[in-house]
């Protein structure tokens, strides 16, 4: 990949626009980034987006900003990371600066809330689309371990409200144990 002006500009403008549309929390930006950087631009693999999300989630700070830094760094090195932080931070900075002076009027405006209500359905659809895609791949992998982890993680977070950091840690430790165990068994078979 050539690291020219065009690459950096696309990186910055993409993060800027994606950040401008991440209503409703950090996870919304992940499906958007996957669509943009993986499906559309083919800059980064889908698997890697999920890995980077796990890192973004386990670090302090806003997930959307963390994810932007990671993808920027992956694509454009240090300058890429800086540009994508800027891209991720500018939209909320501008929007809040503008409306913080007139927030009562903004909050009570019926047209604004109708627009936001409509967009909520759109955001939900975007996430659903990506979840079907990613979840479908995991189901197709026919790995009982992965499918089981996915279901267990969903139940833990949705029904029991378990802190996501614990979920990530637990899945990580479990998979490490499984890999080490399989590795040792494999090694013994090999020796025999």
């Amino acid at each position: 990949m050539k690291k020219d002006f065009k690459l950096y500009w696309t990186l910055f403008s993409s993060t800027f626009f994606l950040s401008a549309f991440t209503f409703g929390g950090g996870y919304v930006i992940v499906p958007l980034m996957k669509k943009k950087f993986s499906d559309e631009l083919h800059w980064i693999e889908e698997k890697e987006i999920l890995d980077l999300t796990a890192i973004a989630q386990s670090s302090p700070g806003p997930i959307a900003v963390n994810a932007a830094i990671l993808i920027g760094q992956r694509i454009g090195g240090m300058p890429g990371a800086l540009l994508s932080v800027l891209g991720a931070v500018l939209p909320p900075l501008i929007i809040i600066s503008v409306i913080s002076s007139a927030y009562a009027a903004f909050r009570d405006n019926a047209v604004v809330s109708a627009c936001l209500k409509g967009m909520q359905s759109g955001v939900a659809a975007v996430i659903a689309d990506v979840v079907f895609g990613l979840g479908g791949k995991i189901v197709k992998s026919k790995s009982a371990f992965q499918i089981g982890l996915m279901i267990a993680a969903f139940i833990a977070t949705w029904f029991f409200g378990v802190n996501v950091v614990f979920i990530i840690l637990f899945c990580g430790v479990l998979s490490a144990a499984k890999t080490l165990y399989a590795g040792r068994k494999g090694g013994r078979d090999h020796a025999a």
């Binding site: 796990a54 996430i127 990530i168």
Partner: peptide, 15 residues
């Protein structure tokens, strides 16, 4: 191995 276990978890969190 760890990453292959984290990916399903991330999908679940997004869901």
């Amino acid at each position: 191995g760890i990453l292959s276990g984290l990916r399903p978890a991330v999908v679940a969190l997004i869901a």
